[in-house]
Amino acid sequence: MSPVDVAHVVCTEAFAGVERYVATLAREQDARGMRVQVLGGAPERMRAELAGGGVGWSPAATPWHAVRGLMALRGLRLVHAHMTAAESAAVVGARAPIVVTRHFAGRRGSTPPARLAGRVVARRVADQVAISSFVAQRIEGPSTVIHPGVRPQPAGAGGSREPVVLVAQRLEAEKRTDLALRMWAASGLAAHGWRLQVAGEGALLGELRRLAVELGVAGSCDFLGARADIADLMARAGVFLAPRPDEPYGLSVVEAMAHGLPVVAAAGGGHDETVGASPLATLVDAAEPDGAGAALAALAGDPGRRAAYGEDLRRLQRRQFTVAAHAARLEAVYRAAVLR
């Protein structure tokens, strides 16, 4: 195996927001001349996402697998760990400086043993990065805020917009897709020919289907399941809806911005730092679905406003939320960690 400059560790067999972030960053770092290894993530999806470049990949479903994978690497200069299990594995298996990215807005450990492990991790970490100021304010210790980025999309990709409100996220409790359904019901947009498309899978699918029936909107809601064509959906949709008020960052929101897709987002969390940076932002109170639904309907019913807002979000993404800028700022963190 060739020497490795940085190994990204994520102890999962999934491909959700964190794993997608790791794959995107690893490809960018590879393009910038770094020798990169990724440990963990859904095998088939990670291989597909990393194909065509020089990024190495190996499975790491558990911390033990990650420890073994790290110990097998030679010439390793730095470990970049993502989430608590990967941090613990890095402490045990790495003989190199450790940088961690904090993806969630909370302190390490929900039990006394976990909190003890968190203190051990904190002593070994050279630096930690927070994906938003919202996260940085809610974790222990100092951190460097570096907003993740996405790749710009060509203007006009996908042609004309369709009367579709798109939600793209895991169907789990913390993502608050139920709020999206309540906003949709309150908007009355179904009566004007619009549809709600929900892309994603998760444990709450059945519960959300039942809620759609209770709200009287089942006939206008399309539950699409897991999709590999989210970019195409974003290129065609009329509005993107992000309902979680305490979203740590919201990478899908930034992807929507790249597509020039106007976003209605719950105020709070990372949304205030992404969409909220636009003077045209539509941020709503998720606790007031009637008002949020009215705001959604007002935006959907004004094509000129939607076009102007979408283009402003596209410009904002290209100016502040690119993968290249994110990787460049991380390089400075890496250099400081290696020199300590």
Results as ranks from 00 to 15, higher is better:
89 A>G: 04
76 L>H: 05
113 P>T: 11
114 A>L: 10
95 R>E: 07
90 A>F: 06
180 A>R: 04
110 S>N: 14
162 E>N: 02
174 E>K: 10
99 V>P: 01
130 A>E: 06
142 P>Y: 11
152 P>N: 07
114 A>Q: 15
142 P>E: 15
161 R>F: 01
81 A>T: 05
134 F>W: 15
128 Q>K: 07
182 R>Q: 15
188 G>C: 09
183 M>S: 14
177 T>A: 13
102 R>Q: 10
79 V>G: 13
149 G>F: 12
166 L>S: 13
142 P>G: 11
98 I>N: 10
173 A>I: 01
139 I>C: 02
128 Q>I: 01
133 S>N: 09
83 M>F: 02
113 P>I: 11
162 E>Y: 04
135 V>E: 03
137 Q>A: 15
123 R>Q: 12
183 M>Y: 13
109 G>L: 08
173 A>C: 02
119 R>F: 03
127 D>H: 05
138 R>L: 02
162 E>F: 00
164 V>F: 01
82 H>G: 04
114 A>K: 12
82 H>W: 10
186 A>V: 10
160 S>T: 07
123 R>W: 12
78 L>G: 13
72 A>H: 06
82 H>A: 09
138 R>S: 05
105 A>H: 01
117 A>F: 09
142 P>N: 09
102 R>T: 01
156 G>H: 14
177 T>S: 14
128 Q>V: 00
124 R>V: 03
102 R>P: 01
160 S>F: 00
76 L>R: 06
150 V>S: 00
176 R>K: 12
167 V>H: 03
117 A>K: 02
118 G>D: 07
85 A>C: 02
130 A>K: 01
72 A>R: 15
188 G>L: 03
143 S>K: 07
132 S>W: 10
161 R>G: 04
131 I>R: 01
84 T>R: 07
165 V>E: 00
159 G>A: 10
117 A>R: 12
118 G>Y: 10
139 I>T: 13
162 E>L: 09
175 K>I: 03
72 A>M: 08
110 S>E: 15
96 A>V: 04
112 P>W: 15
82 H>T: 03
147 H>N: 05
124 R>I: 02
169 Q>L: 04
170 R>T: 08
91 V>P: 00
126 A>H: 00
146 I>P: 09
109 G>D: 08
134 F>K: 05
148 P>Q: 10
108 R>C: 00
90 A>D: 09
124 R>M: 12
105 A>S: 13
86 A>D: 06
78 L>T: 10
185 A>N: 12
151 R>V: 10
152 P>E: 08
128 Q>N: 08
76 L>N: 06
102 R>E: 13
79 V>K: 08
73 L>A: 02
170 R>I: 04
182 R>D: 08
80 H>F: 10
188 G>W: 01
75 G>S: 03
133 S>C: 06
122 A>I: 04
140 E>F: 01
131 I>A: 04
107 R>T: 12
160 S>D: 09
75 G>N: 05
153 Q>I: 15
86 A>Y: 05
174 E>S: 11
139 I>F: 12
83 M>W: 04
142 P>S: 14
77 R>D: 11
157 A>S: 03
115 R>P: 06
124 R>G: 11
182 R>V: 05
91 V>K: 11
